[in-house]
């Protein structure tokens, strides 16, 4: 068990007694690029939020590198959904990326030159250096996503939790993010990303969890990402909408 970056035991999450996740057991090995895949309303975002204590589980135990999240907060980086914030907020790229360091700077203090340098380095890593002082409302969707990634990079974490990092980004950004993920993996980081595009799962990730309120399957992509498992996740079991069934029944989808 010591090689697991994230260990989830019997996690159940409910909103007002309506279950969103039922009894999830999940181990994500150290150093993998892991995708969480499942239909809408499968509880993918909830799973990521529960790991960080953003939603309170009804039951279950979550360990990050063998210890509870609270003790390991500095080791976890977070990329929320792009649409979760107001992009008309009066601030610029550098400022948003600096927010990734707020946990380290501590109360009352302001970010200094050292922190700025680190933030700029992260901005450069996502190829946005020329936009560092740009107002965030002037960014394209892909650029917004890169800013969020830079903010997570600057956290200098070991485990990254990303909620739909590829949602609504242009092809260029998508390629850049994939390259970044591979680079992070080679640095020994673990990345867990909610992902909705079934066609790219095999190309982008090496580990996958199929989720639909309960865990349908989890493991290396080659073993787990099978038509039967997908059918069970999207079609059988906890009933998903029929439209999605049609989508994955198309063999072209799985490349």
């Amino acid at each position: 068990m010591n090689d697991a970056a994230l260990e989830i035991q019997d996690l159940t999450v409910a909103y007002r007694n309506t279950p969103v996740l039922w009894d999830i057991d999940l181990d994500v090995p150290f150093g993998t690029l892991a995708a969480i895949v499942g239909p809408n309303g499968a509880g993918k975002t909830t799973l990521i939020k529960a790991v960080q204590g953003l939603v309170r589980p009804a039951a279950g135990n979550i360990l990050v590198f063998g210890k509870p999240y609270r003790a390991q907060r500095a080791l976890v980086g977070y990329v929320p959904q792009r649409g979760s914030v107001d992009w008309d907020f009066p601030t610029n790229v550098l400022d948003v990326v600096l927010m990734g360091l707020y946990g380290r700077i501590g109360w009352f203090k302001r970010p200094g030159g050292q922190q700025r340098k680190r933030a700029l380095a992260a901005i450069e890593q996502v190829g946005m250096l020329s936009c560092a002082s740009r107002q965030i409302s002037q960014l394209s969707g892909g650029q917004q996503q890169r800013v969020f990634l830079a903010r997570a990079l600057v956290q200098d974490a070991q485990l990254y939790l990303m909620d739909e990092p590829f949602q609504g980004v242009d092809a260029t950004t998508e390629k850049a993010i994939v390259a970044l993920l591979k680079h992070m993996k080679s640095d020994g980081k673990t990345v867990i990303a909610v992902h909705h595009d079934l066609q790219t799962v095999q190309a982008y990730f090496d580990w996958v969890t199929l989720l639909n309120v309960r865990k349908m399957a989890a493991g290396p992509v080659d073993e787990v990402f099978t038509p039967e498992n997908l059918h069970q996740t999207y079609g059988g079991g906890v009933a998903g909408p029929g439209s999605q069934l049609a989508e994955i029944d198309d063999p072209g989808d799985r490349g």
Partner: peptide, 9 residues
Amino acid sequence: FAETMLAIH
């Protein structure tokens, strides 16, 4: 809810 949770587990 707890009962169901246990059964599912």
